[in-house]
């Protein structure tokens, strides 16, 4: 029960990141409209344009997920020590045995959780790049080159 809740909370956080990725990519596509149009005049197909933005978005997403997973794994496997260290530095007791029956923060890294989160993030990130890439592929060169 708690685990499912946690999973949904995490999912929400990932969704926010994904929306960030979408809006960033859409902005990039808008900014690059005339460059896209120029590539089309040079004979690039809409498929090529789509691929450029899929690869770009995919790379950013994959890099972020990789870095995030690394950081998360390191933190999760040392969180007990980290909390103890913080308690010593600031001379406070976050976790007192009177309340929690424990005087340390327990943590166990489950690789299955890591795989779950990483694969869901990768999937969402791929879906997130589809829409901006599709928009890029739909740029009409004759329209885009009228302005400026």
């Amino acid at each position: 029960m708690e685990k499912t809740m946690m999973f949904f909370i995490l999912l929400l956080i990932i969704m926010i990141a994904v929306f960030n990725l979408v809006s960033m990519q859409v902005m990039l596509v808008n900014e690059k409209t005339s460059d896209i149009a120029i590539l089309r005049t040079l004979g690039a197909t809409s498929g090529m344009i789509m691929r450029i933005f899929l690869i770009q978005g995919g790379l950013i997403g994959t890099m972020g997920i990789f870095l995030g997973a690394m950081f998360g794994i390191v933190l999760a496997s040392h969180v007990t020590a980290v909390v103890n260290l913080l308690q010593n530095i600031f001379h406070i007791q976050f976790i007192s045995a009177d309340i929690y029956f424990l005087n340390y923060l327990p943590s166990k890294l489950l690789w299955s959780d890591v795989w779950h989160i990483v694969s869901v993030s990768l999937g969402l990130c791929f879906i997130a790049t589809l829409y901006p890439a599709y928009r890029a592929a739909q740029v009409q060169p004759a329209e885009a080159l009228r302005y400026e």
Binding site: S34, D35, A37, I38, L39, L42, G43, A44, L145, E148
Partner: peptide, 23 residues
């Protein structure tokens, strides 16, 4: 077809514009 047209444009046509220069 769209792909064929792009290929044709690539091979047979050259465009030059006033502002949309280079990448």
């Amino acid at each position: 077809q769209e792909r064929q047209r792009c290929h044709f444009r690539n091979r047979y046509l050259g465009f030059i514009y006033q502002f949309h220069h280079l990448l």
